[in-house]
């Protein structure tokens, strides 16, 4: 069982970057870390590989400057190796370009199951994984809250408006994992040491046989025309509860006529 997990490496959301005023792209010059959203896919991938007995988890990422900071975290959790696509021509890629690159890398990996997050923390388009699936001609199940392998099929509990659906899908397939559905393991000291020597295969666009005319900023079919501050919403009255604040809430609800 070969399981590929997409891992996006992003600037630390605790100190979010800003849009570069001239290029209008997100400043990604700082150190990159693993997107928290992907830690759930890594965890589920490792559990599935363990349950299958002798499975392997391979990470797939596209990031600038051959960044491996985030990949090392996932390798330390237990993934076996990583494929990283990095190329200056990829700067300014939109979701479709990103999907084309990830699909080309995944084609080389040839996994039975591809995992990704439902949406990334910084881009949150939520479209990259289904685009990857369509490019690879794979079925996909999005919004998984649990995943099990049963013979040639993957069985997924898929979140819905009303609860969840049980979905079955033949392999190979792509599944996206919703944040928060498992507790990702912390890398052990041994894992962190081992991760340093695990293989990371760094590929350029040329290695994948992709030209800058099909992917990257040059191929992007959309542009930002303006970024401005949103209208601020002013706060109102703040009272400290002295045991009777609930009465003020009741009065407020009466005033706006919901009771």
């Amino acid at each position: 069982m070969l399981i590929a997990v997409c891992v996006k490496q992003i600037p630390d959301p605790a100190s979010p970057g800003a849009l570069d005023p001239t290029t209008r792209t997100l400043d990604r010059s700082g150190k990159l870390i693993m997107d928290d959203s992907d830690s759930y896919g890594v965890e589920l991938g490792l559990r599935l590989a363990e349950a299958a007995g002798g499975g392997e988890v391979v990470l797939v990422s596209m990031a600038p400057r051959s960044e491996t900071g985030g990949l090392r975290t996932a390798l330390a959790m237990g993934a076996a190796r990583a494929v990283l696509v990095s190329d200056p021509a990829l700067s300014g890629s939109d979701a479709l370009s990103t999907a084309k690159v990830l699909a080309a890398a995944l084609r080389r990996v040839g996994a039975d199951l591809v995992l990704a997050a439902t949406e990334s923390t910084d881009g949150y388009t939520g479209t990259v994984p289904a685009q990857v699936a369509e490019l690879l001609g794979l079925p996909s199940v999005t919004f998984a809250k649990s995943i099990a392998l049963e013979g040639p099929e993957v069985v997924v509990q898929r979140q819905t408006e009303a609860g969840y659906d049980e979905v079955r899908c033949p392999l190979p397939a792509l599944v996206t994992v919703t944040a928060g559905v498992v507790d990702p393991r912390y890398p052990s000291f041994k894992g962190i040491m081992a991760a340093k020597s695990k293989p990371v295969d760094v590929l350029s666009l040329a290695d994948l046989g992709l030209g800058p005319e099909v992917v990257g900023g040059a191929a992007a079919g959309q542009e930002l025309v303006e970024v401005r501050d949103a209208e601020a919403r002013a706060g109102g009255e703040v009272v400290v509860d002295d045991g009777s604040a609930y009465e003020q809430i009741v009065e407020f609800l009466e005033r706006v006529k919901v009771i």
Binding site: A95, L96, T127, T142
Partner: peptide, 22 residues
């Protein structure tokens, strides 16, 4: 919606056109 995003993503590949989301 849950299905809307899947549909838009796959349509984008079929048409080879990007998507504006959110």
């Amino acid at each position: 919606t849950y299905d809307g995003r899947d549909i838009a993503a796959r349509l984008s590949v079929r048409l080879d056109r990007p998507v504006l989301t959110n």
